[in-house]
Amino acid sequence: MTLTLRHKAQAILREAGWNLAPPPVIWSPRMARCAGLFVIEKDSRGTWHPEIRLSIPLLRRRDWPWPQQVCGMNCHDPEAVQLRILEHELIHFKLWMDREKDWGHTERFRQLAWEVFGHQSITHGIGHEEPERS
């Protein structure tokens, strides 16, 4: 049985001990500069909706040199790369759900990345990510 991205996100949240339903997780054919993105968009009624977008051009590639560093961790196959990116984006989602003022790459983000997932870096390392904001 193949798990959907939403099922994978749900399993990650459960294993992290975060009692959250996952946001929609979609593949984006247009994202070519960043492997993953957490976005919140407001609908016509003024309701905010979170979503995680993953890059088809970057994350479905099979020709990366292995191992590939993602979030400071060695990944040896495309599935591991996707998992690290999804973990990273779910941290943004968790901070947003916790009503943190800043759900970007804050000290709290770093703490969760390290303590929950063992991430050694707060950037994906896949694609042309924007430099960190201070």
Rank of each mutant, 00 (worst) to 15 (best):
Phe117Trp: 11
Cys71Asn: 14
His76Cys: 13
His92Glu: 09
Gln82Trp: 01
Asp98His: 07
Ala113Glu: 08
Asn74Glu: 13
Gly118Arg: 09
Trp64Ser: 11
Gln68Thr: 12
Glu89Gln: 02
Trp96Pro: 05
Arg62Thr: 15
Gln82Asn: 05
Val81Ser: 06
Leu83Cys: 07
Leu90Lys: 05
Leu95Ala: 01
Asp77Pro: 01
Arg84Phe: 07
Trp64Thr: 06
Thr123Ala: 11
Trp66Arg: 09
Arg108Gln: 12
Met97His: 11
His88Gly: 04
Gly72Trp: 09
Arg62Ile: 11
Asp63Val: 06
Gly118Lys: 07
Pro67Glu: 15
Met73Trp: 01
Glu100Asp: 09
Glu87Ala: 02
Arg99Gln: 13
Met73Phe: 05
Gln82Arg: 12
Ile85Leu: 13
His105Ile: 06
Gln69Glu: 12
Cys75Ala: 15
Gln69Pro: 00
Trp64Gln: 12
Gly118Ala: 04
Arg110His: 07
Ala80Ile: 05
Asp102Ala: 03
Arg60His: 13
Pro65Ile: 12
Gly118Gln: 07
Asp102Lys: 12
Leu58Gln: 05
His105Glu: 04
Gly72Gln: 05
His88Glu: 02
Pro78Asp: 14
Phe109Arg: 12
Leu59Gly: 05
Pro67Asn: 15
Phe109Cys: 10
Pro67Ala: 15
Gly104Ile: 12
Glu79Gln: 12
Arg110Ile: 00
Cys71Thr: 05
Ala113Leu: 00
Trp64Glu: 07
Arg110Gly: 10
Glu87Lys: 09
Glu79Met: 01
Thr106Leu: 08
Gln82Ala: 03
Thr123Gly: 03
Phe93Gln: 00
Glu89Val: 01
His105Ser: 03
Pro57Cys: 14
Ile56Ala: 10
Lys94Met: 09
Pro67Ile: 14
Ala113Ile: 00
Asp98Leu: 11
Val81Ala: 04
Val81Tyr: 04
Val81Pro: 00
Arg108Phe: 01
Pro67Thr: 14
Arg84Trp: 03
Ile85Pro: 03
Arg62Glu: 14
Glu115His: 10
His105Phe: 02
Thr123Phe: 08
Asp63Leu: 08
Gln69Tyr: 02
Pro65Lys: 13
Thr106Glu: 13
Val116Gln: 07
Gln69Asn: 04
Arg60Cys: 13
Val81Phe: 03
Thr106Met: 07
Gly72Val: 04
Glu115Asp: 10
Ile91Thr: 08
His119Tyr: 01
Trp96Gly: 02
Ala113Thr: 06
Leu86Phe: 01
Gly72Phe: 10
Gln82Asp: 03
Glu107Pro: 04
Ile85Ser: 07
Pro78Met: 14
Thr123Glu: 11
Pro65Leu: 14
Trp114Glu: 09
